[in-house]
Design a binder for these strands. Structure first.
Length: 293
DNA sequence: AAGATTGTTGCTTA
DNA sequence: TTAAGCAACAATCT
């Protein structure tokens, strides 16, 4: 679930909490998650501190104070980063149902999905939780980081997202527009949710081929992508959950979703059409074939 | 109870 | 060279 707005929300939360705090210890509870040798990882982090948090696509980059290294975190489908003070619970986390989140609120961390723990000198802790264990934590040198950054396209929330660059990113493709929107090498940070939302708002069919898009449509899409992402960040991302707990931080953008998560056959909320589902690029795609052309 | 689920990689085939 | 299509990763929920 974490796409650009969710990852960005976590980044902003953690920036306020963990920068320049001494990390006394790290516990790796699941070696699959940490892509380095466990002892090496723990040794490198010990007595170190984070100086800055950056984001490339859906990857968080924690710059380390000592040596030229960064710690990368990818949350994939079900990863969470939850920061917890002694009595205070501050989180940047997202999960499918809110159960582990609520568990955190109740002071139940670490739980069975906690894979890595960072202990700060202020008695605060940062938990990396991941139900499905697709996510990862990885220490990389600055040189490796530069290589990784090259694999990512323009970021809709950064200054390189100009109309010219957007058109350039689509250039040479003749595939469904949705695929291109989710292609991290071309445009970084968009996943299934925001691809569907952007296309709905732009009234463009997700299966429309990129070379068939008119200039007007490209402009519309170009405007709408940052618009939606900004709003999603404002509302702290999208969390799927039927219940609000009021204490912990949960994304509220689900209340603003126009198309994602709607069921086949339901009424479109913009026109008289009905909601359709299909697969594009192997992912469930929700759209209205009456007002998205 | 089979099929679905937010992301990415890497393999096979065209 | 390119891309399309899948299985795999793993654990849950419907």
């Amino acid at each position: 679930m974490p796409e650009l707005p969710e990852v960005e929300t976590i980044k902003q939360d953690l920036e306020k909490k963990i920068l320049h705090k001494k990390i006394e210890q790290t516990k790796v509870r699941d070696v699959k998650i940490v892509k380095n040798n466990k002892n090496f990882f723990q040794k490198e982090i010990k007595n170190n501190f984070f100086t800055e948090i950056d984001r490339v696509g859906k990857i968080l980059i924690f710059k380390l104070g000592k040596r030229d290294q960064s710690m990368l975190v990818h949350l994939k489908m079900t990863g969470q980063l939850i920061f917890e003070c002694k009595n205070n619970f501050i989180a940047g986390g997202h999960s499918l149902d809110n159960s582990s989140f609520s568990a955190g609120v109740g002071g139940d961390l670490p739980n069975k999905y906690t894979r890595v723990i960072f202990y700060f000198s202020t008695q605060a802790r940062l938990f990396f939780n991941d139900l499905r264990r697709f996510g990862y934590v990885k220490l990389v040198s600055n040189q490796e980081l530069e290589e990784i950054k090259k694999d990512f396209g323009i970021d809709p929330m950064k200054s390189d997202f100009t109309f010219k660059n957007f058109v350039q990113a689509l250039k040479g493709t003749r595939v469904e527009i949705k695929k291109v929107l989710m292609d991290q090498k071309r445009i970084a940070g968009i996943g299934n949710i925001y691809a569907d939302e952007s296309l709905f708002l732009s009234a463009i069919a997700p299966y429309k081929k990129t070379d068939k898009l008119k200039k007007r449509e490209l402009e519309e899409l170009y405007q709408n992508i940052p618009k939606i992402l900004k709003k999603a960040i404002k509302y702290r991302g999208t969390t799927f959950s039927n219940y609000t707990d009021g204490e912990g931080k949960k994304g509220n953008f689900s209340n603003f979703l126009k198309i994602y998560g709607r069921k086949q056959g339901e009424k479109c909320n913009r026109c008289a059409g009905t909601i359709k589902k299909t697969k594009i690029g192997g992912r469930t795609t929700t759209y209205c074939d009456k007002c998205q052309k």
